[in-house]
């Protein structure tokens, strides 16, 4: 099944082109390029909200982007069951919109972290169904505010509804303090909404799919959606 797509660019987005390349090379279809002030998104299968520093991340990461005119289109799309993938700043924006629960705080060590990290699948959803349960994915992260937080009830509800999509782990698949690079609650690297058609992910799959990348594991996410 071919996958039609759109990528939204906010002022300060800097992974929008990377997301477009990711979609184009894997799905074979050129994604629509959407500007944050646009009024409509053509009907597509997936919308990617890319990484970057939307509006400079000046108030809170993703806060101002979540007020852009295009967001109502994202909400419509997700309500009718369309896929939404928010990567890094995109994840932060999705929590600010309220499509995903919780928030992303500053990394515990207060430093920007840019390196390859390991994640593994937790609860199954549209985005990871082609990934084996014991597969350890190697995917780069690059963020200053990726420490996932939710209230106790919020966290419980996530877990009860099987919304925790990915966990940080080490290369052997163990999730421990050391592998939890940014201090996220319960090692959370990615979550979905209840309906599981919206995924927020701190690591960057669009930087791990080409033959010259350190790893090609990022392919698996789009391939899960295509199959």
């Amino acid at each position: 099944m071919p996958l039609s797509s759109a990528v939204i660019t906010f002022p300060g987005s800097n992974c929008d082109r990377d997301a477009q390349t990711y979609l184009e090379l894997i799905t074979g279809q050129v994604p629509h390029k959407i500007w944050h002030n646009d009024q409509i998104i053509p009907k597509v299968d997936i919308i990617i909200i890319p990484g970057g520093f939307s509006f400079g991340d000046y108030l809170r990461s993703g806060a101002m982007a979540s007020k852009s005119p295009i967001i109502k289109e994202v909400l419509k799309h997700s309500e009718r069951g369309g896929y939404v993938l928010g990567i890094c700043n995109g994840f932060q924006i999705l929590t600010e919109i309220g499509l995903l629960s919780g928030a992303l705080n500053r990394n515990v060590k207060l430093k920007f972290i840019a390196k390859n990290c390991h994640i593994k699948k937790n609860n199954e959803n549209f985005f990871n169904k082609k990934i084996q349960n014991d597969k350890i994915l190697s995917i780069p992260v690059a963020h200053n505010e990726g420490s996932y937080y939710n209230s106790e009830e919020g966290l419980k509800s996530l877990e009860d509804n099987e919304q925790v999509a990915f966990l940080y782990c080490d290369k052997d698949g163990n999730s421990n303090n050391e592998s939890n690079i940014n201090g996220s609650l319960n090692h959370i690297a990615g979550i979905t909404n209840k309906e599981k058609n919206v995924l927020g992910l701190m690591p960057h799959p669009e930087r791990a799919f080409q033959d010259f990348h350190q790893s090609q594991d990022g392919q698996l996410i789009l391939e899960s959606l295509i199959s």
Partner: peptide, 10 residues
């Protein structure tokens, strides 16, 4: 409520 504060964490 609308912008300045994220009441989940702030």
């Amino acid at each position: 409520g609308k912008l300045l504060v994220n009441d989940i964490i702030e």
